[in-house]
C-alpha cells in the first residue's frame, strides 16, 4: 500500500509534466515511466467501467418485482438496500418460514429477504421476531406493534373476477384480514343487475392495511383478484391543495368552508346582450327562459336550479357595477 501511494504521486507528477510542456523536449521521459502511466490508466479505466456497471446494476435492483414483499419494518427500497447486509437472520427467525433470501438469478436484489403473499403471507407475529433478529435495523426496531407495519398495500385489483363484485357473498379476503373491519370493510351497493340484491364490496383502507398478504393468499379465484403490492405503486395522492368539503365541515363542527366565504362568481365575459342556450349564470340577472324565476327579473338565485330553489333567492344586489352583482350568501 505504501509503495502504491508513492506510485500515485508519481502519476500526478507525470501528468503535470505532460500538461506543462508537451511541445518541449521529452527526452527525460523513459519508456518505463510511459508504461507505468499507461498501466495506471488501464487500471483506472477498468475499475471505472466495473464501477459504472455495478452502479447500473444497483439502479436496476431498486426496481423490485412488485409481488416480492419485504418483511415488516423495511423502509423504502433504496434505504433498505443500503441497510440490509443480507445475513438472513430474519429468514431464520421467522417461525412460519415464509421469508427467503433472493438468489442471484432472481430479479430481487441478491441476498435480500422477501416473501410472496400468494404462496405464504406474513402471519403477523405479535413479537415480530424477524425485526428483532435484524442486526442492522434494516428492519426498523422501532416497529413494536405489528399492526403498524406497512409491508405493502392490498388492492382489489380485478373487479371483473372478484366474486363479491359479481354479486356473490365470498367475503374471504374480508374474513381472513387480521385487521378485519378496519383494513378491509364490506361496503353495500345496490346490485343493478338483479335490481333487488345488495353487493358487498370489499374495500381496502390504506390507513389500516399492513400489507401482510393474507387476503391475496386466501382469495379463492384462480388468479388472486385482490393483491398486495408496494404502496407507492398503487397509492394515489390527492395533493396538498385539495379540501374535501364534507371533511372540512365535520372538522369545523358543521360549518362549511364555502358558507363562510361565499360563492365568488367570476364574470362570464360574454359580449353584451349575448345569450347562450341553457347557460346558467348565478351571478347575472339573466336566466334561461323557462327556468323557475325567469319571469322575475329581480330575483337572482344563489344556488343552481333545482338546488334550494325554495329557500334560495331574495338576494340583494350589492353594488351594480357592470350590471353584475356578487351574491351575498343567502342566510340559511
Amino acid at each position: 500500500m505504501h509503495r502504491y501511494r508513492i506510485a500515485m504521486s508519481r502519476t500526478s507528477d507525470q501528468s503535470r509534466q505532460r500538461g506543462a510542456g508537451t511541445s518541449g523536449s521529452s527526452g527525460t521521459r523513459s519508456p518505463a515511466r510511459r508504461q507505468f502511466v499507461f498501466d495506471t490508466a488501464r487500471l483506472l479505466c477498468g475499475v471505472g467501467i466495473l464501477g459504472l456497471g455495478l452502479a447500473g446494476y444497483q439502479r436496476n435492483a431498486l426496481a423490485r418485482p412488485p409481488l416480492a414483499i419485504r418483511p415488516p419494518g423495511a423502509g423504502d427500497e433504496e434505504d433498505f438496500l443500503g441497510a440490509c447486509i443480507r445475513c438472513g437472520m430474519c429468514v431464520r427467525d421467522c417461525p412460519y418460514g415464509i421469508l427467503a433470501l433472493a438468489k442471484p438469478e432472481s430479479p430481487v436484489a441478491t441476498g435480500t429477504p422477501h416473501f410472496t403473499a400468494r404462496s405464504g403471507p406474513c402471519e403477523m407475529c405479535e413479537d415480530i421476531p424477524c425485526v428483532r433478529a435484524c442486526p442492522t435495523g434494516a428492519l426498523d426496531h422501532s416497529l413494536t406493534d405489528i399492526n403498524q407495519s406497512r409491508m405493502g398495500l392490498a388492492i382489489l385489483s380485478d373487479q371483473e373476477t372478484c366474486l363479491n363484485f359479481l354479486g356473490l357473498r365470498c367475503d374471504v379476503c374480508y374474513r381472513v384480514c387480521p385487521v378485519i373491519d378496519k383494513a378491509i370493510t364490506l361496503e353495500l351497493r345496490p346490485n343493478t343487475r338483479t335490481g333487488r340484491h345488495t353487493m358487498f364490496i370489499p374495500t381496502v383502507h390504506s390507513e389500516h392495511c399492513t400489507g401482510c398478504g393474507k387476503c391475496e393468499n386466501a382469495c379463492v379465484t384462480e388468479e388472486a383478484s385482490i393483491r398486495v403490492l408496494p404502496a407507492p405503486l398503487i397509492k394515489g395522492s390527492l395533493g396538498e391543495h385539495y379540501r374535501l368539503g364534507w371533511e372540512e365541515k365535520r372538522k369545523a363542527g358543521g360549518h362549511s368552508l364555502v358558507e363562510e366565504r361565499g360563492i365568488v362568481d367570476l364574470p362570464d365575459r360574454l359580449p353584451e346582450g349575448m345569450r347562450l342556450e341553457g347557460h346558467f349564470d348565478p351571478g347575472s340577472e339573466r336566466l334561461p327562459a323557462g327556468m323557475p324565476g325567469s319571469g322575475d327579473a329581480q330575483r337572482v338565485p344563489s344556488l343552481p336550479p333545482g338546488l334550494g330553489a325554495a329557500n334560495g333567492g331574495a338576494t340583494a344586489a350589492a353594488g351594480g357595477a357592470g350590471g353584475k352583482a356578487l351574491p351575498a350568501e343567502a342566510g340559511r
Binding site: 455495478l54 444497483q58 433504496e78 438496500l81 447486509i85 438472513g88 429468514v91 432472481s106
Partner: peptide
C-alpha cells in the same frame, strides 16, 4: 446509497448460497 458490491460479491454469494440455497 446501496451496498452495490453485495449484488455480485462471489465470496458472500457462495457462502450464503450453501447455507440458504445456492441458486
Amino acid at each position: 446509497g446501496g451496498i452495490a458490491w453485495e449484488l455480485v460479491n462471489p465470496v458472500s454469494m457462495l457462502q450464503r448460497g450453501l447455507i440458504f440455497g445456492l441458486g
